[in-house]
Amino acid sequence: MTNEAKSGQTKAAKEQRLKSISKKGLKTMQKNRNRHVVRNKARVVKYGTKSFGRNIWLSTAATVVMAITLIILFVTVVASVILTNTAEMMKDKIDITIYFKPNTSQEVLDELEGRISSDPNIKTVDTSTSEQEYEKFLKENENSDDILEVIDSEMAAVMVAKMQATMRIKVYNVDNLNSIKQIVETDELFTANTDKEMAPTYDVNQAEINTITSWARIARTGGIILAIVFLVISILIIFSTIRMAIFSRREEIYMMNLVGADKGFVRGPFLVEAEICGVIAGVVAGIVSYFGFEFMSPKLTKYGIDVSQINSILESNQLVLVFLVFIVAGALIGRISARLAVHKYLRKT
């Protein structure tokens, strides 16, 4: 073997040994670092919390805007739910009421019910004879003593004789009642028994339902747009807050990097700071939304708006879940915004 070849082999062996030593050393370093993950994370949270306190004014501004965003999101969801529910409730209240001559027998009513039920749009059919209608009347007025006082047996007999037998129909689709109308107007049994003095009633509250449905749509669309606008504003404010914090601590960050702070140690506190903003905003928004809804709920009910679904959520164990959603949403907005800022301005660290 020539001297040159020997020298080459020695060199390669040295290189290999150096590589092995370096890799072993680096592996040990990584291992040591991984041993303290929990402790380090706790310290990052501590630094982030301190940082939140140091930038209290900026942090407060960011928190307020984020809370407003979350409240708008809540209002949007609630408005959409209660308006949709109200429209559904009103749809459910619709009766097509068909009046028949007094004293129409139960057998005839059953036959009429059978014929109308053949229409696929029919959801439910409820019939009652003149006697049953009279009973209903009495029940509806059981607390009205002045009315009950004037009804003696003679008057009761007159009332029963005069009261129409009725058929109340609920349908699946209120926009398409033509087929039902056709049966009522053309079927022989119907035409023979309907009371000519009391025309059937169709489309009750349809105009109101349409109005509420369109409000629900507007609330949903408008709310989403407004929420997106505020979401963007929140993200920008948090982004700026973190950016300013990064710029004001540039020297500090440089020093942290040089003394061997891990990426997580340098970036983590900024993320924690934004998350704290988000969590506080979530709690504030949750409290404001809860009490705001509690305050508004009776007023809305008075106007016939159905708040039962939201009420049942807020009065049950799900309230905790709602609060959690607020907090997680806030923390998420904070984290995303801070991540954007950190990614943009601390990329080199």
Binding site: K19, L26, M29, N32, R33, N257, D262
Partner: peptide, 12 residues
């Protein structure tokens, strides 16, 4: 052999 992820540990 000191990659970016090793730098903090190396500097320590």
């Amino acid at each position: 052999y000191v990659k970016k992820r090793h730098i903090p540990g190396y500097r320590r």
